[in-house]
Design a protein around this nucleic acid. Structure first.
Lengths: 261, 261
DNA sequence: AGGAGGACGTTCTCGTTCCGTAAGGTGCCG
DNA sequence: CGGCACCTTACGGAACGAGAACGTCCTCCT
């Protein structure tokens, strides 16, 4: 998803196309639903042959590939995708049976970018996919060079491409979520966001426990605020959510009261 | 869940029809009551079959759906609603048993828009429903341009996106309700509103003690008026309600004759 | 492999803030 | 002068956010 990173400048990131390949209708249904919900355009194929056709026709941004397939199995699909120049670079996430270590390793060798073992939680799958997309976007960002160069607010600096952040001269050690959260807020200075909206735009979920956001804001404050107990950068808006306040020039604030009357 | 009451300046919402599907009369009764008091028209169904019939007949704006149902269970109802073009887009809020993660996920896959775990607080359910309605309404109306730039009247300034307000150069510390109230009034300068109308447009309720409005107007005056005892910004219109008076040009706008002798 | 460490999501408790309502007071109108 | 509408104040409860701690999963290192 990197939606969290694209969002600052790109209001509506181009919806990514994902091809889901699975012969089990239930699994395909569940996965498709989750991905659509996360904002992706989903196409489906039920066997290896169809998968290759769809991939050639659609040029998806990512392929979710079940290993056990009729006609042509997942490993073979993977191999052929990698052989074809047009689909050579497409990220592949494999679905493998639990403990099927051998196929998994083989899949990785054939060029799969990640794997998820069945039974899997759809949530986890989405996370993996987002992670893979982020990685590959970072690796091959030729046309997508629209990606923000490092941007700044106050004495905070964030480099989305490098995934690094600084406070003044000191580099911050942020986790993945913390970084995404900070990057998003920095990209929308002065705007208040509800927890639910942060959940959607940073986490990419429509649901989930909103206290998760609270906790991560707390952890982030711990790392970037001078006094986490009295946050000046990430302000709490009571009953609403949070807001990043760019207090660029300390001492220049306009406390000039207009002595009306 | 707190976001439901955030809409400060939305025009009066069209009364929405909600279909409540639950086989437990007590639950259905309680939920219906709360929803009706929140201003929704409520229809009820006790099993899956009836639910589908009612949905087809009424085209409700939202469906509250219990998972455990006689005849046809909630998941199946959900599936069929989604299969039917006419009901394909209707938002669905599911009621699931606590910790029934599997059904919950499956429900979301089948197209539910949110879920609430039993036992739930009716209040929370109403908030979720409002949230879902707002989301789907927003999705359907892309050019809504809800984003108000910060706007001004006199020396008052309100920034809805940042949720901040200033009087002259001094920033005001407003609570959620106070802010919404001020934002609404600022957005309709010179217009008098009855307490009941403010209740509906600021609070979003069709019921409730109107003195609540009185008290909040008082608290707001306390923060923005030079002399809360002789309010110049938020004027009382006797027998009607309140009105915001933009006294832009000092010395010019004194058409409000001071009655006092 | 096995174990240590970190990241993340969840849950619980606690203190604070906010909000709605009730009750009595005051001013406006007939 | 009586009645009504509005004002003012106070209070109890509920909602909210902060903080701390736990359990789980993943990753990395040995």
């Amino acid at each position: 998803m990197s939606e969290a990173l694209d969002a600052p400048a790109l209001p509506a990131p181009v919806p990514r196309r994902i091809l889901v390949v699975d012969d089990d209708p239930t699994v395909a249904e569940v996965v498709s639903g989750y991905l659509q919900r996360a904002g992706y355009a989903v196409d489906r194929a039920v066997d290896g042959r169809a998968a290759l056709e769809r991939a050639a026709a659609l040029h998806p941004d990512l392929v979710v590939l079940d290993l056990m397939l009729p006609e042509i199995d997942g490993l073979e699909v993977c191999r052929r995708l990698r052989a074809e120049p047009l689909s050579q670079a497409v990220p592949i996430v494999m679905l493998t049976a639990k403990g099927d270590e051998h196929d998994r390793i083989l899949g990785l060798e054939l060029g799969a970018d990640d794997y998820v073992t069945k039974p899997f939680s759809p949530r986890e799958l989405v996370l993996r996919i987002q992670s893979v997309l982020r990685r590959s976007a970072g690796a091959a960002a030729p046309a997508a060079a629209v990606d923000e160069g490092p941007f700044t607010a106050g004495d905070l600096r964030v480099d989305p491409t490098a995934r690094r952040a600084w406070r003044g001269a000191r580099e911050l050690t942020l986790t993945l979520r913390e970084f995404d959260l900070l990057a998003f807020l920095l990209g929308h200075p002065g705007t208040a966001f509800g927890r639910d909206e942060l959940m959607r735009r940073v986490w990419g979920w429509d649901f989930g426990d909103l206290s998760t956001v609270t906790v991560h804001v707390r952890r982030l404050r711990e790392k970037i605020e001078d006094d986490p107990a009295a946050p000046r950068l990430i302000t709490t808006v009571w009953g609403v959510g949070y807001r990043f306040d760019p207090s660029d020039a300390p001492g220049r604030a306009a406390e000039t009261a207009v002595p009306h009357a």
